[in-house]
Amino acid sequence: MAAPALRERHAAPGPPPAPPGDGGRWEPSPSPAGRAPARGSAAVTGVWLLAGAVAILFVAFTSTLLVRRAEADWRAGPFPPAFWATTGVLLASSAAVERARARGRAGDLDGLRRGLWVATALGGAFLGGQVVAWGGLLAAGVGLATSAHASFLYLLTGAHALHVAGGVGALAYAGWRAHRALVAPSAMEAATPAAIYWHVVDGLWLYVLAVLFIL
């Protein structure tokens, strides 16, 4: 079965057939017999690469934090209580995404749609919660330049929120695709990479919290 346009790779498994013929006069080619390229979705590969780049970004931010906190004047600020709520919301959204994927894998398109919309809504709620948390901090007199810890807090949670916003967009897109889809596997093509990315930003949040408040 050959597919049209850009999808031919899926239709071409295995090594190329050895053509007939008794030539054999010249065959050297020092490379091993060609294998078919790696399978799997390009979007999934792409999203893992994106996750790698995002991880490097946060490692760069936090490595400077580790250097900075070794200075004598480092004082960690208090843990904003609103973060308890937003953390819970974010973890719940990850669970919703995972449940949606499980439904989708089982072929339950309605379950997939529902799960994705719930996760999207929870993601939006997380962003709202973060705004509330920042507002609380500002009201308590903790500004961007108040202390080194506050600078890193705004920097890290702000950068994280931007990545979450992208993730909410991805989930909404996956939800929209699921809404339009007739069969679950087709919808999963968008849902799987969106879910992976969502788990990455979720894990990133725990990492940010750990670096800011636990270390």
């Binding site: 790779r9 190329p16 091993p32 017999a33 390229p37 799997g40 590969t45 792409g46 690469l49």
Partner: peptide
């Protein structure tokens, strides 16, 4: 770069192994 890596990993034609 995201595009280049994914393309090279995923879209090689039949027989185009990495070492070719």
């Amino acid at each position: 770069s995201l595009n280049y890596i994914t393309t090279i990993l995923q879209l090689r034609t039949r027989g185009m192994s990495m070492m070719r």
